[in-house]
Amino acid sequence: MKPFLNTLLFCLSIGFSQAQSPCDKIKYLDKLAMAPSELPVQDFKVFDYNQVPDSVKARLQSEIIKETSAAFFKELKVKTVKYLDSAINSTLFTPVVILDNDNNPVDFVYAIFYEMKFKGEIPFVFKLEVKQNGELLKKGQFEGIVNQKKKIIPCVKALSIAATDKEAPITKPGEIYIYYNQTYKTIVWQIMEAGNTTGDSQHVTVINVFDGEILERNEFLKGMQEFDNDLR
């Protein structure tokens, strides 16, 4: 009887620890993940996808299928839509110049956030920047995203890699993000250090989701972590 109780207690403790795992609260996008060259989507206005004209949706569907496949498009789910027009842009502290693939100026752009799933039912959200008529603002926005046949390392494996890093281990994981990294042209796990309570910075480890390679070890200034949690 005693071995059975010990086993039961062990299983319950494992279940409880898993329930408290940072991997239970993965976040998809954050402003710090975006390179300076990207558009400031945090300043875009939220828009109802149902209000997007059917002609724009049809053009966008055609563009996505042309860049990927019909099967890929079928698996996508719209999470959020935002837009930036010339009126909003003019109110920004630093207005941006928006250029399309041919370097022509554009005064209206949608940022459409799509959810997809990799093998293992791991969710992932990415954004597309789209012209007002439904044409992709830039080509190549699916680079590093479209191949769903690739199996990505799970969150718990990423935590293990970050914890055993000899150069700068994550001793106490905090927020965890999965997003497309523009610099490395791949999807990454970003693990924030929660145990750093001194100083003005917070350690971050960025890991390639496909092969587990540590791509960056960064220090982010505290107080700069304003995340787009409305996309969850």
Score class of each variant (00 low, 15 high):
69 S>L: 12
85 D>Y: 00
127 K>R: 11
101 N>C: 04
167 E>I: 03
135 E>R: 09
95 P>V: 00
123 P>V: 02
166 K>I: 14
88 I>G: 04
93 F>L: 09
161 I>K: 02
128 L>I: 12
123 P>D: 03
93 F>P: 04
133 N>M: 04
110 Y>C: 03
156 V>E: 13
69 S>V: 05
160 S>Q: 13
89 N>C: 04
64 I>Y: 13
70 A>G: 11
177 Y>P: 02
175 E>T: 10
83 Y>I: 03
142 F>G: 08
102 D>L: 14
172 K>R: 11
137 L>A: 06
178 I>D: 02
112 I>E: 00
123 P>C: 03
162 A>L: 07
106 V>W: 00
159 L>G: 10
167 E>V: 05
77 K>M: 08
107 D>V: 13
133 N>Y: 03
145 I>L: 12
108 F>A: 07
147 N>A: 13
77 K>F: 11
143 E>L: 08
68 T>F: 08
94 T>W: 14
105 P>T: 05
84 L>R: 00
110 Y>W: 13
127 K>A: 05
118 F>S: 01
110 Y>L: 01
154 P>T: 12
68 T>H: 03
171 T>W: 05
128 L>Q: 14
93 F>G: 13
116 M>I: 14
173 P>I: 11
159 L>Y: 04
102 D>M: 00
168 A>R: 12
155 C>A: 01
80 T>H: 09
124 F>D: 09
148 Q>F: 05
78 V>Q: 07
63 E>G: 06
120 G>Q: 08
158 A>Y: 03
116 M>E: 11
80 T>D: 07
176 I>P: 01
79 K>A: 10
116 M>D: 08
128 L>P: 02
127 K>S: 14
138 K>H: 15
176 I>E: 12
70 A>H: 10
83 Y>T: 08
164 T>V: 15
164 T>D: 14
112 I>K: 04
182 Q>V: 11
119 K>A: 11
181 N>V: 10
155 C>P: 15
140 G>D: 06
130 V>D: 08
83 Y>R: 02
71 A>H: 02
179 Y>T: 04
111 A>K: 00
167 E>G: 04
131 K>Y: 08
129 E>A: 12
103 N>G: 00
83 Y>L: 06
112 I>V: 14
158 A>E: 04
84 L>E: 00
141 Q>P: 11
92 L>T: 10
161 I>T: 10
137 L>M: 00
162 A>G: 08
152 I>D: 04
126 F>K: 04
130 V>C: 05
73 F>H: 15
83 Y>K: 07
